[in-house]
Design a protein around this nucleic acid. Structure first.
Lengths: 345, 345
DNA sequence: GCGCATTCAGAAAGCGCTTTCTGTTGTACG
DNA sequence: CGTACAACAGAAAGCGCTTTCTGAATGCGC
């Protein structure tokens, strides 16, 4: 049983056992064209007996294109991506596609590498999830990989990034969203703000910061430079940024973390130093990842339909590939006020 | 530019442009054997000029086996899987492997389907993450897919399941973990417990429940039938189970949710009905997913090194495939007491 | 200076499929 | 009864690679 039976069952084996030609076996299994009933039965039986599975590589090579789409994100374990990935997987499986998911840990080089691999796999589509970098060299090498891929018929779609990429995109309105949030917070009476941001080289970050700052500006409230604290784009980054805020002796009445994930770290940092949220400081995030409703207090945020966004990029990439120019679907964020923000007394 | 240039650049194109044979071009690009320096230069230059990427399918077909491993889990957006997946991706990329991730949404049929697809892709290894089902028919169809795959040289490794699968496995000691937790909770003085469980058909669930119940039994504490509430294996399931508990008018001093994800739902349910944790009821989970330290109160749980577990299955599957019989790595859970459990007054 | 081993480039044979092209049979028609 | 045309099975040509097999140079010993 365990003897060197190293090799796969091939269509040839099936054909031989069913005593038909290769072509006939292929036709039966793919339903490509009519085959006489008795032959068909024989082929089906043979395939079942041998536990035959077609070699997808051979199929791909022979013309029937690949069954898989590639998704590149920064980190699977980030709830933001996980939520989007969920939508992607659902939509992909509706299209009968397998999903290859890769995390780059925000390493631009790794990202380019993965695109090359996906290109080699002849993935039907490549989905880029998450903010791009504002980095000329990186943009060029991305484009260098993506352009030949697209020219050869590959589809590319992205969430949250665009500059320099001529591809279909699902674009959350980061600027407008954080502006709306700022106005909501102003309405609560706040005038003294701080912002915890991720790396400003990420377009998502800079957009959210800009939107927030502009909306404050329109209300005549200025956001001082030292009230903007930059840290890694993670829970720990949020924790560190909040800690730094306190270390600087700043006591804004309201803090905006540019992502919920960072806000979570900040919330814990505040709690650990005995600051009450929202009693001592109001806190708001962005994204509305699933967990934030279960925090104490539940987090005020700008809700993005993450799951749906995943579905939409996927559909963008998989539907009518004939589209000439790149389509853009804008996603409006909805401000959700929860208990983490309180009116200023 | 956009004209029907539908086709990929092939090795043939590179060879032609470099004015060498196909074989030479292949040798240069793979470093398979020595090639005269000037020819090598020409090939490299041609490949770069044409932005050549080898067709992975052709490579796979021609013998060099696939570059990808497949991972099947129940739900990518579940933090438990996400954390494991993270470890998998790290280890996989160290082995130069691409990861294809599929979620089955706990649908056994879908699971079998995905294995067939991965088999078709000639994935180098298949990783099954998450509890199996106690279901004879399903086990048979799984085995029917897996067995020919393994016979043909495919590697299979699993996290958290085993029965009937003869494969390498990373096995968290669920039974022992929840027993240890039970003892810790008994030490706090609790005698009146309830358990919120997922579907008992999942081996993980039944093991955790059994371990907990047994340890209580050894201390002479009985877990009444109506104090065990079954619900879906999700945050909402936990919420529903906790709600049901209160609806039944039960007021145990301590509640154990078999996963952290369920515990999170329960925590919110308790909070929403005005029950204080741990003042009115202590609450514990299992897994130690990253978020639980940021909850209020932080959750007592049995910590599993999720990230490391992902790494270990991957290594199990990718290292020395010559291993004759299946290896098992047991993972010990560590009880972490946090503020969600308090000593009984 | 001749025969031999040694390098290294090229030709060609697959890998397992799909699909076009060919050929054979059976049926309907004049 | 012979011809035209479906209908359908089989042969064979790739798809883009890797790798074995061939063969032409080159360098070496005697």
């Amino acid at each position: 049983m365990v003897t060197g039976e190293r090799t796969h069952v091939t269509l040839q084996d099936v054909a031989r056992r069913a005593e038909v030609s290769l072509a006939t076996a292929s036709r039966v299994l793919n339903g490509t064209s009519q085959v006489r009933a008795d032959l068909r039965e024989r082929v089906l039986a043979a395939a079942a007996d041998l536990a035959y599975t077609p070699n997808a590589h051979a199929q791909a090579l022979a013309g029937a294109s690949s069954q898989a789409i590639g998704v590149i994100c920064h980190d699977v374990s980030d709830p933001y991506f996980a939520a989007i990935a969920r939508g992607v997987m659902r939509a992909a499986s509706e299209h009968g596609q397998l999903v290859m998911l890769a995390s780059t840990n925000r390493d631009p080089a790794r990202e380019v590498e993965y695109i090359a691999m996906l290109r080699a796999q002849r993935a039907r589509a490549i989905l880029l999830i998450g903010s791009g970098f504002e980095d000329r060299a990186w943009e060029r090498s991305m484009a260098a990989e993506l352009e030949p891929y697209q020219r050869a018929g590959g589809r590319v779609a992205v969430v949250s990034r665009h500059r320099s990429l001529k591809v279909d995109a699902v674009l959350p309105e980061n600027r407008e969203g954080s502006a709306a949030l700022a106005r909501a917070l102003l309405d609560l009476g706040h005038r003294d703000f701080a912002v915890l941001t991720g790396p400003l080289a990420l377009t998502t970050v800079s957009d959210r910061l800009a939107g927030f700052r502009d909306a404050l500006g329109e209300a005549g409230v200025e956001l001082a430079g030292d009230h903007v604290i930059e840290a890694p784009f993670t829970r720990d980054g949020g924790h560190a940024a909040a800690t730094e805020l306190m270390r600087r002796g700043l006591r804004p009445t309201c803090v905006f973390a540019v992502t919920d994930v960072m806000a979570i770290g900040a919330l814990t940092a505040f709690r650990d130093s005995g600051l009450d949220v929202p009693g001592d400081v109001s806190l708001a995030g962005f994204d509305d990842i699933p967990i934030v409703g279960d925090l104490t207090p539940p987090l005020t945020t700008v809700a993005l339909p993450l799951d749906e966004m995943g579905e939409r990029v996927t559909n963008l990439a998989l539907r009518d590939p004939r589209g000439r120019r790149s389509r853009v679907e804008r996603i409006t964020g909805r401000v959700v006020l929860r208990a983490s923000t309180a009116p200023l007394r």
